[in-house]
Nucleic acid binder design. Structure first.
Length: 226
DNA sequence: AAATCCCGCAACCGCGATGAA
DNA sequence: GTTCATCGCGGTTGCGGGATT
């Protein structure tokens, strides 16, 4: 049994009711986001602040797109994952109306399997060595990728046992044998003018800023060319 | 029709980062 | 420089419902 995230005994857990949703929406409409710690009490909710924040960000925000991912979105996620690894918030930041949780779930439930069926290791985006070998072997039956559902079912169920979950995808870009050789992942950012002075003063900050998604201004221009 | 399996999604938890005192 | 409170992220879990047996 998991330990509760909040010490308080009188906080609700689990699925949100419509009333709770409405309270949260009403409160944020009036007062805006922020100060999640004190929000539940102020809004009359028996929830911890963390839970409120998550509910708002992942489900209630008015600018959320929801619905199925388009092919262009799928492509973008795959490319960004190849470059960034499991930095879901950073990836979601390039997909308007999508949340990190949504992108993460979609990756784990759809895209991972899709790549596997294509013979690509979803962790490092390289062609699966076993598949490469079997493709070279005289028995073509080994190389087939049909029957995707059956193949998927042979995978250990998601992360529950799956140590593959952790990704070193970012490193594949340094490798000549990356599975996506035609991919030009020229992911560059234009630094907001207000922060240029800081960066110029300390060139090493370029890297650290890039790896710190929450520090990237929403207006940052992350260019992805192909 | 009932039982079981499996998938997708919402929500929770732990932990690192950050900023204020 | 240290401590503490809070926020935000990524990993993980659990439930509901559809698919399969």
């Amino acid at each position: 049994m998991r330990k509760p995230c909040c010490d308080k005994q009188d906080t609700n857990k689990g699925a949100w009711s419509k009333e709770e949703d409405q309270k949260l929406i009403d409160y944020i409409r009036k007062h805006g986001e922020g100060c999640w710690r004190s929000l539940p009490q102020a809004a009359g909710l028996l929830r911890c602040g963390k839970s409120c924040r998550l509910r708002w960000i992942n489900y209630l925000r008015p600018d959320l797109k929801r619905g199925n991912f388009g092919e262009d979105e799928e492509d973008l996620i795959i490319k960004l994952h190849a470059l960034l690894g499991n930095r879901w918030s950073l990836i979601a930041g390039r997909l308007p109306g999508r949340t990190d949780n949504e992108v993460k779930n979609y990756w784990n439930s759809h895209l991972r399997r899709k790549l596997i069926n294509m013979g690509i290791d979803p962790n490092n985006h390289r062609l699966n060595q076993n598949l490469l070998r079997s493709r070279n072997s005289p028995n073509p039956a080994n190389a087939t990728s049909s029957g995707s559902k059956i193949q998927a079912k042979q995978q250990p169920t998601k992360s529950r046992v799956d140590s593959e979950q952790t990704s070193d995808a970012g490193s594949c870009l340094e490798d000549d044998q990356c599975a996506l050789p035609d991919l030009n992942l020229d992911l560059t950012m234009s630094i907001p003018s207000s922060s240029i002075a800081h960066v110029q003063g300390n060139p090493k900050d370029n890297e650290s800023n890039f790896l710190r998604p929450q520090k990237i201004a929403p207006s940052s221009n992350l260019l992805l060319s192909q």
